[in-house]
Design a binder for these strands. Sequence first.
DNA 1: GCTTGCCGCAAGCAACTGCTTGCATTACCA
DNA 2: TGGTAATGCAAGCAGTTGCTTGCGGCAAGC
Lengths: 218, 218
Amino acid sequence: MIDDHRQRILHAAARVYAQHGWRGATTRRIAEEAGVNEVTLFRQFGSKDALLDLMMRECSRIEQDATFPSEPVDPEQELLAWVIVHHTVLVSMRAIVRQMMSDAEARPDAADCASHGPSAAMAQVREYVVKLRRHGWITESGEVSPAEVRAAATMLMGAVFADGMNRDMMPTMFTQPVPETLRAYVRIFLRGIGALQRPAPRAARTVERDSTSTTVPE
Amino acid sequence: MIDDHRQRILHAAARVYAQHGWRGATTRRIAEEAGVNEVTLFRQFGSKDALLDLMMRECSRIEQDATFPSEPVDPEQELLAWVIVHHTVLVSMRAIVRQMMSDAEARPDAADCASHGPSAAMAQVREYVVKLRRHGWITESGEVSPAEVRAAATMLMGAVFADGMNRDMMPTMFTQPVPETLRAYVRIFLRGIGALQRPAPRAARTVERDSTSTTVPE
DNA sequence: GCTTGCCGCAAGCAACTGCTTGCATTACCA
DNA sequence: TGGTAATGCAAGCAGTTGCTTGCGGCAAGC
């Protein structure tokens, strides 16, 4: 309750910043949006820059809670579910992400904040791909090189990112609705790395029990 | 020579806008960047908004001149060459594109301008995919649905877009150099639509000579 | 030579913006 | 009940920003 004002101001700052960017997020606008007198803002945070810096740090702490199962069973469904969550989060934050990307050169904090979410998501996908390989979904001796698999993960993330960021602005590029498109992304990704079919039924999960520790060092 | 000043101002406006965005592109900064007195700017264009509007319209007229061959012979090489050009153009304009994306809500002109290039590029890729199918690279009765092929084109464009826009800001997401990554995108795209192998050698190009006109209606 | 049109220069104006100050009010805690 | 901390309110200040005005210089065309 005591931090009611601080939280209100921080949330208002996020909303105003998402709409107007750094320069457009004036202290008067933020104060009005928060229903608070402008001086309160300076007494609480010192300066506009300090307030926005803190807002960004808070904002980068928001993390999506989507996770992959510990053992892949149905890659298409699992990836699709994960991608939908990621896409939804991205769409809900697209305005603020756009502002951060344009402010990134002037404010390095904005770049850090904007790249935090995608980086974490990327790490999750890479970890999942490792599991796919370990469980035989990706043939080691297949025609797809490891570098290509890595690029495929980047490609999937990039496509989802571009979809979430641009769909509302470029209607001619996105002709099909979101769910179908995301499912297609996932299927093309899996087919692209040769993992759309069931793995060869040689026992893959008996050997791995202890070697999972090697997965952790990210 | 008579429009020397107008052109200088327009180019300066584009540079300043790319760095500082709409609000940050002050008339004084633009005038200084152009080596011109500030009043000249108002006498030539009337107002700051009119100047930036015109700058954006000029900017959206820049078109990449990469084209696909009329008949696909080596899809991987042809797509790769095209994607490299598209990526290069995007990287050279990424600062201004970022600003336009963040200003898109407030200035609809910015959205139009920013979406013009990608839309045209997308149309080219779709046209090329049609040619691929017509020439037998994509099996009509294959396991890849037409909707998925369409989404694959969106996915490729999205991945290239995200790569060009984010690579400099999120180094952890892009571990491999640009050429290898772009080649991987293309290969995954082709494999994803089942067009990485040579087409069945049934004569596909004898029939098409006159039906190429039907390709045009974009 | 003289008009015409474009430009630079100096000055300034009104609105906005980040920030400060002084004072009155309110709520909470000892 | 008195002290303390947080808040609101009004005013203001210096710097910025879009834009205007008035003046003089200067090259081109009649």
